[in-house]
């Protein structure tokens, strides 16, 4: 009897181990099939772009595509910078000082994602002839959000300021976004 019980235990352990090995293999097979849906090497290669700022004169703005989204790059005039810095932060629906949205020593350059934080339209204000809204920045025609010269929401239904993407100056006149 004792031998039989021992036998059962040993058999079960072996069976258990074998089944566990099989199950682990089956489970580890899942990861490649899940991971293949993540961005492939081609998409990852385009995850960051370099932009040459030399051709953008003071007061001018360009739009570049980054990760499928428009990015507004504006070379702000001294007046525009001053206006942005003067605004009391507490008055802002999404409180954020201008200094946090630009790079030190390069305050004239504003880089924001050009997608309204309300429902995703692309605000107007890049072209010279565009209306810039009541605060001199951008105006979203879909539901009337107004952004200031720092890309911050001042009036209208948008909840947050225009997103500042991760970027850095790789040289005096070149930035790398992403």
């Amino acid at each position: 009897m004792a031998a039989e019980l021992e036998d059962t235990n040993r058999r079960d352990f072996l069976v258990l181990t074998a089944n566990a090995f099989a199950a682990v293999g089956a489970a580890s097979l899942i990861w490649p099939f899940v991971h293949q849906m993540n961005p492939d090497a081609g998409a990852q290669a385009l995850a960051s772009i370099e932009v040459d700022l030399a051709p953008v004169k003071e007061g001018q703005a360009i739009t570049v595509m980054w990760r499928g989204k428009p990015v507004f790059i504006r070379n702000r005039t001294k007046d525009e910078v001053a206006a942005a810095q003067k605004v009391p932060v507490s008055e802002l629906p999404d409180a954020e000082p201008d200094a946090k949205r630009v790079k030190a020593g390069k305050e004239n350059w504003l880089v924001t994602v050009g997608i309204c934080t309300h429902l995703g339209c692309i605000p107007k204000g890049q072209a010279l002839a565009d209306t810039k809204g009541e605060f001199g920045g951008w105006f979203c025609p879909c539901h009337g959000s107004h952004y200031d010269t720092s890309g911050r929401i001042r009036k209208g239904p948008a909840p947050r300021n225009l997103e500042v993407p991760p970027y850095e100056f790789v040289s005096d006149t070149k930035i790398k976004i992403g």
Binding site: P32, F33, H35, Q36, N38, D40, A41, G42
Partner: peptide, 13 residues
């Protein structure tokens, strides 16, 4: 070719 080269584990699948 993109599957073989760029897609994650594409070569294996």
């Amino acid at each position: 070719e993109r599957i073989r080269r760029d897609v994650n584990y594409g070569w294996m699948i």
